[in-house]
């Protein structure tokens, strides 16, 4: 907990010692774990009144957050009549029929699942593989107009989906990429790649260049300094980026709708296909929803600790 020992950061900064402070804080923040964080929270001064308020707020928040999800999972095990009964039914004989239904009949789920895994996984991997050097380059670059470049990168992510889809579609058709996994991967890259570059560049900016410089002095090439010094130190950033890209791609509907076909439809498409003229099969929809949601939740929670530090884009240490 070296952070406790540092002098008042404001003073340090005004004295022009940013480098040292930043380095030290970084050290602290990479080591920080939620448990340690809780020790530093000011509960010693929290009165019972406040504590009750906090517990009530959190209780309500948990209800608000969890009821829809729990209801979805519960409903996925309910018989159809219990789902559409006017009185909500809490007691029922669980049935696996909706899940069974997903794997039999016309639209079997396995290919969808496979497409989702392949397309989302590949696009997340590629985004990190391409985004890491680009983010590093951006962080370390001293070119003029760097800010414009970096703003351009963010702005590509803001492109309105419906407007870019037609030109992209025609481009992909020329390249024979429609209804292929590579095509879907590229489509996902339009929003994942800028995000990855942006996020990773902020991770690299947080690294003190001194570390790489000492590696250079010891005779490393710049690539080696990146590969063996900078990259290992940003592992949390790489993992965060990967998982977020995975979530974005896995959850995408608008692009998948346009660029997929019989050989590449993904899970969200499968979910939307349950909305038919003749009605919505809510049981299957809840089952498929559970199916879409659970893997991403697990992935997200697995890296939650890093998400916390990752998503602040260095704003914490920048103060």
């Amino acid at each position: 907990m070296s952070v406790l020992d540092t002098p008042n950061p404001r003073r340090a900064e005004s004295a022009g010692q940013q480098e040292a402070v930043e380095q030290e804080r970084r050290h602290a923040s990479t080591k920080r774990s939620p448990r340690e964080g809780s020790r530093s929270s000011p509960l010693d001064r929290t009165g019972t009144g406040t504590r009750v308020v906090i517990l009530v707020v959190l209780g309500l928040a948990l209800l608000w957050t969890l009821v829809p999800l729990v209801w979805m999972v519960l409903s996925s095990f309910k018989p159809a009549t219990a789902i559409t009964s006017a009185e909500p039914s809490w007691l029922f004989t669980p049935t696996g029929e909706h899940y069974a239904g997903l794997f039999t009949g016309g639209n079997e789920l396995i290919p969808y699942l496979w497409h989702s895994v392949a397309a989302a996984g590949l696009s997340a991997v590629l985004s990190v593989v391409l985004g890491a050097p680009a983010g590093y380059g951006l962080a370390r670059s001293e070119m003029r107009g760097k800010r414009h470049l970096s703003f351009w990168i963010i702005s590509t992510r803001m492109a309105p989906i419906a407007a870019v889809v037609l030109p992209l579609f025609l481009m992909f058709r020329q390249l024979g990429l429609i209804d292929t996994i590579p095509g879907l991967v590229l489509a996902y890259m339009t929003f994942n790649l800028p995000f990855a570059i942006w996020l990773l560049s902020s991770f690299f900016s947080d690294l003190p260049p001194a570390l790489e410089e000492s590696a250079l002095v010891e005779g490393c090439t710049r690539w080696q300094a990146f590969r063996h010094v900078a990259l290992p130190l940003t592992k949390p950033g790489l993992v965060t980026t990967f998982v977020l890209c995975l979530v974005f791609a896995w959850n995408d509907y608008a692009f998948a709708l346009v660029f997929s076909g019989p050989d590449s439809q993904t899970l969200p498409i499968a979910a939307s296909q349950l909305v038919t003229q003749a009605g919505i099969d809510w049981g299957q929809l809840c089952a498929i929803g559970t199916f879409v949601v659970v893997p991403m939740m697990l992935a997200g929670l697995a890296v939650r600790r890093w998400l916390v530090t990752g998503l602040t884009l260095g704003a914490v240490t920048g103060e």
Binding site: L126, P133, L175, G176, P182, L186
Partner: peptide, 18 residues
């Protein structure tokens, strides 16, 4: 490899389905 992946993805996609 990292550096070539982007360009190659285009090319591979094109070839595969060309």
């Amino acid at each position: 490899g990292g550096a070539l992946a982007g360009g190659a993805a285009f090319a591979a996609g094109g070839l595969l389905n060309g």
